[in-house]
């Protein structure tokens, strides 16, 4: 029973939290959760709300599944997982509708799509089903944070270059526009999100050689 004496933030547990931020980032390395990631990144604010919602859903459902892991028969586990995630998402959705109605309108179907965000299913399958609640909680937090970080970086660049604002505030001074600077309308369009992520992957892998694929 040596495991029970393990401190809450042992190096192993801490690794669960930090690894997804870089070496096993859910978006750029594990290729999970791209779907909703890209559509909500035109502006920083919805991207931030989306990232927070995913953190909540993911941490809680990881813990719940980890608590249930010994009682759920493997054959019906997918349905159980979906039900847990779906009920969490309904809670988040109702919360957003009640307190942040504008943003919930902007996110439209994408809050619902957190259910099918493969990052959550993927981590439940890969981690929560075979680990204790506390590591599962950390793993959920770490992965959701890794997801959120990419979301926020992409949204930052798209908002800055596409509308010249950050968090809705004008940051590019009026004078620059008078010299003929134009907002890059292309950045607002959906395909540019993909290209920005492609560029992030390029930078990350150039720094972190072991992630390079053979072809």
């Amino acid at each position: 029973m040596s495991e029970e004496k393990e401190p809450l933030f042992s190096s192993k547990n801490l690794k669960l939290l930090t690894e997804p931020l870089n070496d096993s980032n859910p978006i750029t390395v594990q290729v999970l959760g791209i779907c909703s990631a890209l559509a909500v990144t035109v502006k920083l604010k919805p991207a931030f709300v989306m990232a927070l919602s995913v953190v909540v859903v993911m941490a809680v459902s990881n813990v719940v599944i980890s608590l249930l892991r010994k009682t759920v028969p493997p054959r019906i586990r997918i349905i159980v997982q979906l039900v847990v995630i779906a009920s969490m998402v309904i809670l988040v959705d109702q919360f957003l509708k009640a307190f942040l109605f504008d943003i919930s309108k902007q996110l439209s179907v994408f809050v619902g799509l957190i259910i099918t965000n493969c990052i959550i299913m993927g981590r439940l399958e890969a981690f929560a089903l075979s680990n204790k609640p506390w590591p599962a909680f950390l793993d959920g937090l770490g992965n959701a944070a890794g997801y959120g970080v990419i979301l926020i970086i992409v949204a930052f660049f798209r908002e800055l270059l596409g509308s010249g604002t950050i968090w809705g505030f004008q940051v590019i001074p009026e004078g620059v526009y008078n010299f003929g600077y134009e907002n890059n309308g292309l950045m607002i369009l959906p395909p540019m999100a993909l290209i920005v992520v492609g560029a992030i992957i390029w930078v990350q892998r150039a720094k972190n050689k072991k992630l390079i694929e053979s072809n």
């Binding site: 290729v31 959906p190 993909l194 892998r205 390079i212 694929e213 072809n215």
Partner: peptide, 18 residues
Amino acid sequence: DPLKGLGITFIITGLMGI
């Protein structure tokens, strides 16, 4: 090298999207 695999796929998808 760093673009191989995933990176270039993202960029191609972006171009196809455009």
